[in-house]
Simulated scan of single mutants.
Amino acid sequence: MPTLTTIAFDADDTLWQNEHFYRITERRFTDLLADYGDADAISHHLLQAEKKNLALYGYGIKGFMLSMVETAIDVSGGAIGTKALRDILDAGREMLAHPVDMLPQVRETLEHVKGSYRMLLVTKGDLFDQERKIALSGLGDMFDAIEIVSDKNVGTYERIFARHGDGPERGMMVGNSLKSDIVPAIAAGSWGVYVPHALTWVHEHVDAPVDAPRFVQIDALGGLADLLRRIG
C-alpha cells in the first residue's frame, strides 16, 4: 500500500461547530412562521428549497438565507410581512457573525500531525464566511495549503491531492460528512476517515462505505493519532 504523505481535514463540524447554528436559526424561523404551519412541515419545505437552490446559490449561509425567504413567501401564500422578512435576514446576518466554537482535541491533533505529513484544509461553502472562520480559528498557519471549494466530489480530491500531495493514493481525508468528505475521497483512491458529529445536515446523509479497505471510523478527532500509528 502506498505510503501516506498528505492528510486533508474538513472544517465545519470537524474542526469547529457549524450545523448547531443552522439548527438554532431554523427553530427561530419555524417559530416566526408558526401561523402558517407546524414546524416539521415548514422545515421540510425549507429543506426542499435548499436542495433546489444548491445549483444556484451553492453551500453556505447566504443560500440558506435566500431559501428561508423563499420558503416564507411560499408557505404564507405571499402574505408574509416585511417585518418578518427583515427578521429572517437579521437571523442570517447573526449566523455570518457567529464565533468559532472549536471542537475537542482539534489543536492537539493538528499539532501531532504537522511535521510528519503535508496537512491540508479542504472546506466547501461561501468564500467570505469560510475565510472568516479560518482566520478566527487561529489554525490557518498550521496548514500547508487551504482549499475552499464549491463542492466536494471525486474530481475535487483527485485535483487537490495531485496539486498539494503525491496523488490521492497517498492521501487521507478526515471529516464528518460521509457524502462530501468520505465517499468521494475513497472513490478517488485516498483514505477516508469518518469522524461522526452529533448534528449533520440531512442532505449529507449516505450509507457508510464499510466494505471499502480504506474506510475508517473514529469516535473523535483525538483518535487520529492512534490510527496513524496503526496504519504506519
Rank of each mutant, 00 (worst) to 15 (best):
L4K: 09
D12H: 05
L15K: 11
W16D: 14
N18G: 11
N18L: 15
N18E: 14
N18K: 09
T25G: 06
T25Y: 11
R27M: 12
R28K: 09
F29R: 05
D31M: 14
D31K: 14
L33I: 04
G37H: 03
A39C: 06
D40W: 08
H44A: 14
H44Q: 15
A49H: 12
K52F: 15
N53M: 13
Y59R: 02
G60S: 05
K62D: 10
G63M: 05
V69G: 06
E70I: 08
T71W: 06
A72C: 02
S76V: 02
S76P: 03
G77H: 04
G78Y: 08
I80G: 02
G81S: 09
T82K: 12
T82N: 11
T82R: 15
R86I: 10
D90L: 15
G92I: 11
R93P: 11
M95N: 04
H98M: 10
V100W: 10
V100P: 02
P104R: 01
Q105F: 05
R107H: 01
E108S: 14
E111P: 13
G115P: 05
G115W: 03
Y117N: 06
K124Q: 01
G125Y: 10
D126E: 07
K133I: 05
I134T: 04
L136Y: 12
E147N: 12
S150I: 12
V154P: 08
E158A: 09
E158S: 07
R163E: 11
G167E: 00
P168N: 02
E169Y: 13
M172V: 01
P184G: 02
G189A: 00
G192Y: 04
V193H: 03
V195Q: 04
W201M: 09
W201E: 13
V202A: 11
I218E: 05
I218F: 07
D219M: 05
L221E: 03
G223K: 13
A225Y: 07
G232F: 08
